[in-house]
Design a binder for these strands. Structure first.
Length: 200
DNA sequence: TCCCCGATTACCT
DNA sequence: GGTAATCGGGGAT
């Protein structure tokens, strides 16, 4: 097993801070991760897609670590996660934001609406778009490539934590402080409390 | 089958 | 700062 595969075999809450500063190589664009969120498995995390057990959509989360879990959000955006923990246990790290470190021109072309380079991969949907990922990349193996993940030489010593963005209900509270980010980085997406649940 | 609503973004004021 | 856009998952019927 590679060092990367071993590192990703831990639960996502342990892996998430290690991914800060890691570089994800997508299609012609690479992003240095600055903000991530951890999600746990069945029965332990009400904010997780895997909370109620495996479904066709979430099957990758229950597979081996080091795979990419890609899903459609709000009918219009793709979000991507790095699957953690051994096969049979669902946990994953949602990649929320990063800085483009390779393929700047290609990232700009993919993200025409961005006004600054810091906005190119600021937000999970934007990050996925900048990298050129597609739904067909769901399940892609980040250890054998061509999409691949590079951990930093040394883990970040300082990072912020907070409740997760955009998670409504109990999963979005202080009980789950599973959002991790690099302090002061301009590419960290704006913190947005989960929207109040609409009443009937 | 039906139907609500989400791990969001972009554009408007 | 407010909100329209947009569609598939999965619990409910």
């Amino acid at each position: 097993m590679t060092a990367l595969a071993a590192a990703l075999s831990a639960p996502s809450v342990e892996v998430a801070p290690l991914l800060l500063g890691a570089v994800l190589h997508g299609r012609g664009v690479a992003v240095r991760l600055t903000e991530v969120e951890a999600y746990l498995g069945t029965g332990e995390d009400p904010g997780s897609h895997a909370h109620r057990g495996p479904t066709p959509r979430t099957r990758v989360m229950f597979g081996p670590p080091g795979r990419l879990y890609v899903y459609l959000s709000y009918g219009m955006h793709l979000c991507c996660n790095v699957v953690c923990s051994p096969r049979g246990t669902a946990s994953a790290v949602l990649l929320r934001a990063g800085a483009v470190v390779e393929g700047l021109e290609l990232a700009r072309a993919r993200r025409r609406t961005s006004t600054t380079d810091a906005d190119l991969a600021r937000g999970p949907g934007r990050l996925t778009t900048a990298l050129g990922l597609a739904r067909s990349d769901d399940g892609a193996d980040l250890i054998t490539g061509p999409l691949r993940l590079e951990l930093p030489d040394a883990p970040s010593l300082e990072y912020g934590t907070s409740p997760r963005t955009g998670v409504s209900g109990p999963g979005g509270t202080e009980a789950f402080p599973y959002r991790f980010w690099l302090p002061g980085d301009p590419t960290v997406s704006p913190y947005r409390r989960s929207p109040p649940r609409r009443r009937a």
